[in-house]
Design a protein around this nucleic acid. Structure first.
Length: 574
DNA sequence: GCCGTTTTCGGCCCGACTGTTTTCAGTCG
């Protein structure tokens, strides 16, 4: 029973309680808070139930009752409360309430009046004009429902950060030409560098809001205008990405940026703390009674709350507020700290550019070292090499090295981990490498126990230095394979193996929660691009974003070390 | 359902937009 599943159960309980009505809204909120806490928990809740560490009822938002419910879920695989709610409430109502524009109240109203309990029936009723007969609903909501149902089928809920960046750049450039515009900044999960974003929040300060909002909705790529007002407007682009615009006076820039950066959980926690200090925080400033005491810059807002400035990547209510209060915030790693890239491919396997081109590009990026990690033979689709292929490549590397100054080429390979945990290359060729990277490329459907055994065995191999993309997920396309990551982290720690943060925007593997977990366990990580062409070397920043979201400092990331020290780290004591 | 220098009850973040009302409820972020 993994954390996301437990979180999902609590979130479902919250939704069903809400749709059922009558429940204390704060009880509903408590389930949502608990879902978030479990979701972002560094350790596994299942292990916590088994070992009593950490104590569940001491986690934020989880008391005796919810701790007991987590125990029930772990031990029985389900939650009686949820089963009962599901018996009482038709499941289709959940899908109905999740439609934009429809919430629990309206979903329940429609169900009560017309007996509708699924999206198809709702769609038919809306098209037939039957909803407007219900008091409180009208033709506008009716047509919105039809559109929402149609959109839900084509619109993917979340967009990868890199995809969002490609959309945001031109949009912001266009917006900057609005008359009277002073400052523009992208906030929200985008600024927090989350791996995916649900929508884009653009913050603008301007003397007059009207012209900015007008230009915002007139962008050629806009497919639908959801809302348009003096401070808030909202559109959907052709790609399905929703973009929200907020316009505030320049004097409120800091407060608005802080507020719209979120996360929601972080904001709620800080605002609750503000209430305790008889302060009020909103998007216009920090207020003591009617007096505004901060708001022009983000730093001011934090100062008013007696907190250090918290980097956006940490604003997830995972302990950063306490850390900011006590001066214990991490000094997060930056792209400038990175001295080498430790996974990339060349035309010798499935890369698109030659060894020379990749080396030249790494030199141009100011790196001190790079590892050339072409695939091994088992990965046939990627043109994996036999030992002889690697030896030929290493001779080339020797020749190239003589011409290069300042950049050291490390002989390496991305060695495939076979089904039984053995490595795809033999001892002799492994011994010729400077650094050995291993990873899984096949049999993703193995049982959790088998996959864990397989990976742990590979990690324990004395020649192995780095475990690459440890969970195998592809964001939005392939779920991570089943594996006990705690066991993998423990093996990595015991064997001095580095865990990779793969910087490919569709991988970002490890994810932020696992990065945090590994770092807490004392495991060192590396950030590598897995570049298959020169341009992909620039993905490094996405990997660093992920490291930062996992609270990593420079010393947690091994490829921030100068070459000599990095080599020392590779020379394991075994 | 959680929580506590306002502590075991009585609170629980705050504001904007829309559609349907005729002063506001529902939804959203």
């Amino acid at each position: 029973m993994d954390n996301p599943t437990i979180a999902r159960i609590f979130a479902d309980v919250a939704d069903l309680l809400e749709i059922q009505g009558g429940a204390n809204v704060f009880r509903i909120r408590a389930y949502r808070n608990a879902a978030r806490t479990v979701e972002s928990l560094g350790a596994s809740a299942e292990a916590a139930v088994r070992t009593g560490e950490p104590k569940l009822d001491e986690l934020p938002g989880i008391g005796k009752d919810l701790a007991g419910k987590i125990k029930e879920i772990v031990e029985t695989g389900k939650l009686t409360l949820l089963e009962e709610l599901k018996r009482q409430i038709p499941e289709g109502l959940l899908a109905m309430m999740r439609l934009p524009g429809l919430g629990p109240k309206r979903a329940k109203l429609i169900h009560g009046e017309l007996g509708i309990d699924n999206l198809d029936a709702l769609d038919a009723a809306a098209r037939a004009g039957k909803l407007r007969a219900i008091k409180g609903l009208g033709p506008t909501i009716e047509s919105r429902i039809v559109k929402s149902i149609a959109d839900a089928k084509i619109r993917s809920a979340r967009h990868r950060l890199a995809d969002a960046e490609a959309v945001v750049g031109p949009y912001v450039a266009y917006l900057k030409k609005a008359p009277g515009l002073q400052r523009v900044e992208v906030a929200g999960s985008y600024r927090r560098r989350a791996e995916t974003v649900g929508d884009i929040d653009i913050l603008v300060t301007a003397k007059k809001a009207g012209p900015v909002a007008d230009r915002f909705v007139a962008y050629p790529d806009v497919r639908q205008v959801l809302a348009k007002g003096d401070t808030r407007s909202s559109v959907v682009l052709a790609s399905g990405l929703q973009v929200d615009l907020r316009v505030v006076p320049d004097a409120s820039y800091g407060a608005a940026l802080y507020y719209f950066t979120g996360s929601k959980a972080h904001n709620v926690a800080v605002r609750t703390e503000a209430v305790r200090r008889k302060l009020k925080i909103n998007e216009y400033g920090v207020f003591q009674g009617a007096r505004r005491i901060a708001g022009r810059t983000e730093e001011d807002v934090f100062k008013a709350m007696r907190l250090r400035w918290i980097p956006p990547e940490l604003r997830e209510n995972r302990g950063e507020i306490d850390a900011a209060a006590s001066g214990a915030l991490p000094a997060l790693v930056t792209v400038k700290d990175i001295r080498g890239d430790l996974q990339m491919h060349t035309t010798d396997s499935d890369g698109k550019q030659t060894l020379d081109e990749m080396a030249e590009a790494c030199r141009a990026r100011g790196y001190a070292y790079m590892a050339v990690t072409d695939h091994s033979k088992a990965v046939r689709v990627a043109g994996g090499l036999e030992a002889t292929g690697f030896r030929r490549q290493y001779k080339e590397i020797d020749k190239l090295q003589k011409r290069l100054r300042g950049l050291t080429l490390l002989k390496s390979a991305e060695v495939d981990i076979l089904d039984d945990g053995a490595l795809d290359l033999d001892e002799r060729i492994l011994a010729e490498m400077d650094v050995v990277v291993v990873s899984v490329h096949s049999k993703f459907g193995m049982s959790r126990a088998d996959m864990t055994r397989r990976i742990v065995k590979a990690v324990q191999h004395p020649r192995v230095n780095i475990l690459a993309h440890p969970t195998g997920r592809l964001i939005g396309r392939r779920e991570p394979y089943e594996v006990d990551m705690e066991a993998v982290v423990k093996a990595a720690r015991d064997c001095g193996v580095l865990l990779e943060i793969n910087a490919q925007p569709h991988r970002l593997d490890l994810n932020d929660a696992y990065v945090y977990m590994a770092r807490e366990a004392g495991v060192k990580l590396v950030v590598s691009t897995d570049a298959h062409r020169v341009a992909e070397l620039d993905y490094m920043r996405y990997g660093v974003d992920q490291a930062r979201r996992g609270w990593c400092e420079k010393q947690d990331i091994a490829n921030t070390l100068p070459l000599a020290k990095f080599r020392k780290l590779l020379a394991k004591s075994t």
